[in-house]
């Protein structure tokens, strides 16, 4: 029952069907355990011809290309491209800042919708999904699976997790970098409210392992444009501090500082070949995701 209700909460059938239709294809080579639809870095003997290589002793002679031998008088072995499946690692930030809610919009909910939709899309194309919920440490892990059940698990976990831990991207990304391994897709869903240097240092570790990294930065519009008038008292979600000021006095200055940070996130991602997706919580997540997926399709062509 709980799974069903969780599905009901974060399961948006319309968005999922749209995203599944577009589909997710890794832009780089992936290494999976099973034969799948995605190009593998390994060469095998399958359907699609990939090229020739010199015969070396021990090779099965049945793979010799005799036609080539007669033309070039060389022993050449025929090679074919190998196709495999991939593992999509969804890393979901459940730190305290993700609990931010303004005018009924909660970042955690937005993140949950994205995660569920992604997981649904990937599993439907017979690929695997592994999910990790993190803050300053790993809070919860759902092992990789190709079953649709993972949707319910993600939804249920998101619903039941209270965002109370502080963020620590550096520590977590180093840890997860070791766990994930090579040539996989890594989706990081977070507001990335931490030191950007630390974040990118961690992400570089993932990139080093030839992983494809996609960042979903979830930000409320009020965080981008502090349009609050009158006297404001701010309490830090991760800090035990409060600030008091006139909203209109701070707006300009804050907007400038915050957008500088966000621009840095965007430009640094571009520089490292990381996909950066800005998710405005006032916008429907399905629209945001579809836009991104379409961009990928175009990029893939």
């Amino acid at each position: 029952m709980s799974n069903q209700s969780a599905i009901v909460k974060y399961f948006d059938a319309e968005a999922i069907s749209k995203i599944t239709a577009i589909g997710y294809k890794p832009l780089s080579l992936v290494e999976g355990n099973l034969v799948g639809n995605h190009r593998s870095p390994s060469h095998g003997f399958a359907v699609e011809f990939a090229g020739h290589r010199q015969y070396s002793p021990g090779d099965d002679i049945k793979h010799l290309d005799w036609n080539a031998y007669f033309k070039s008088d060389k022993y050449l072995i025929k090679q074919y491209a190998m196709e495999t499946n991939f593992v999509g690692n969804i890393l979901i930030d459940v730190s305290a800042t993700m609990g931010f809610e303004y005018e009924g919009r909660r970042k955690m909910d937005y993140a949950a919708f994205i995660a569920v939709t992604l997981a649904s899309c990937i599993t439907r194309q017979n690929d695997l999904v592994a999910t990790t919920f993190f803050a300053d440490k790993v809070i919860e892990t759902i092992p990789q699976t190709g079953a649709q059940e993972i949707i319910a698990k993600i939804s249920s976990t998101m619903e039941n997790t209270e965002p109370k831990h502080p963020s620590s991207f550096g520590k977590f990304l180093n840890h997860i970098g070791e766990q994930i391994g090579f040539r996989q897709s890594v989706f990081v869903i977070s507001d990335f409210f931490a030191d950007p240097e630390e974040i990118f240092a961690g992400l570089k570790r993932l990139l080093y392992n030839h992983n494809e990294v996609i960042l979903f930065q979830i930000i409320d519009p009020i965080e981008m444009d502090f349009n609050v008038k009158g006297r404001v008292e701010l309490h830090g979600l991760e800090e035990d501090e409060k600030l008091e000021f006139e909203g209109q006095n701070i707006r300009k200055s804050y907007n400038k500082i915050f957008n500088e940070y966000r621009s840095y996130m965007e430009s640094e991602s571009l520089k490292l070949g990381i996909d950066y997706v800005l998710c405005d919580t006032s916008e429907n997540f399905g629209v945001t995701m579809a836009r991104y997926m379409n961009e990928r399709v175009i990029k893939g062509i």
């Binding site: 404001v232 008292e233 979600l237 600030l243 200055s253 500082i257």
Partner: peptide, 15 residues
């Protein structure tokens, strides 16, 4: 005054 529990606190503090 309006009380808000704020996520992007470091940037606001800086501002």
């Amino acid at each position: 005054k309006v009380v808000i529990h704020w996520a992007a606190f470091p940037w606001m503090k800086q501002a």
